[in-house]
């Protein structure tokens, strides 16, 4: 039997954990509830915890008039496009920064870090001007391209740390076996860091999926992404909270699916150093 003091401490730990959970999960649950409760109960005072669930808000955003349905597709196009454009640049860059003797390697890494630290809003106006000058405004490609400002630096940092973990002897063995650097990268190193590539893609996808600032200025009505659609419910005539909540819940689904499917890679990715060889 544990002493009363130990039991008290255990209880305290659980209480603390629950409090944490309430702080982090609470708003999400509240939003979920907001999406399925009748609109007139949303701001009832005192708050109503029991209500008749309804899918009216989802019907509104997806079916009638269904503004947000195509936006889900747009978001997918932009997010997947961001990943597809990201990898061919960030992976070789990370490989070069990890393996080759480059002048100013440190400065390049710091430059990338600087890009990550800068507020994306700072790039908004120059990018808008650039994109309109070359006539790409409103296109998916403009958003995919501009998102790389943030996703490539992050991906390079992440991929470099994965590639750094691959023992140099493996590449030396391949050199002695007669392979040139491209073969070594393609056939030895990249297959080994596949979990890293998956994790990097996931982060790039989620970043692009969640980003609202760039599509806000770059998208057209037909190419608007889901966050832009959500913003649309902050109208001058009032804020329709249950539509916003429904759209937000919708927006949560793809990243959740991705993390559920690939979570073993995230775990493997984070413990990569311990499973090498």
């Amino acid at each position: 039997m544990s002493s009363p003091k130990a039991r008290f401490l255990t209880a305290l730990t659980y209480a603390g954990g629950l409090l944490f959970l309430a702080v982090f999960i609470g708003p999400i649950l509240w939003f979920l509830a907001l999406a399925i409760r009748p609109a007139d109960t949303a701001f009832a005072m005192p708050p109503q915890f029991t209500f008749e669930p309804t899918l009216n808000a989802f019907r509104h955003i997806l079916v009638d008039p269904g503004v947000n349905g195509p936006q889900v597709v747009n978001s997918l196009i932009v997010a997947i496009g961001a990943v597809v454009l990201n990898l061919p640049f960030s992976v070789p860059a990370a490989y070069a920064l990890s393996r080759f003797k480059l002048r100013g390697k440190k400065h390049i890494m710091l430059w990338y870090l600087g890009l990550l630290m800068a507020p994306p809003i700072a790039f908004l106006i120059p990018y808008f001007i650039l994109i309109t000058r070359i006539g790409l405004q409103g296109s998916y490609f403009s958003m995919v391209l501009v998102l790389q400002t943030m996703t490539i630096p992050f991906s390079v940092w992440l991929m470099k740390s994965f590639i750094d973990e691959v023992p140099a002897e493996l590449e030396e063995a391949a050199r002695v076996d007669g392979a040139r650097w491209f073969t070594i990268m393609w056939r030895i190193t990249l297959p080994i860091v596949r979990p890293g590539i998956i994790v990097t893609s996931m982060f790039a996808f989620v970043f692009a999926w969640n980003n609202a600032a760039f599509p806000l200025v770059l998208s057209a009505r037909s190419t608007a992404t889901l966050p832009i659609g959500t913003l649309g419910y902050f109208a001058t005539s009032g804020v329709t909270w249950n539509f916003i909540a429904a759209a937000a819940v919708l927006a949560m689904i793809p990243p959740m699916i991705i993390f559920l499917v690939f979570d073993r890679y995230v775990v493997r990715g984070l413990t990569f150093g311990s499973v090498k060889g």
Partner: peptide, 10 residues
């Protein structure tokens, strides 16, 4: 070459 840690391609 045979390496100390074998350096087999995993």
């Amino acid at each position: 070459m045979v390496f100390q840690n074998y350096a087999l391609y995993p």
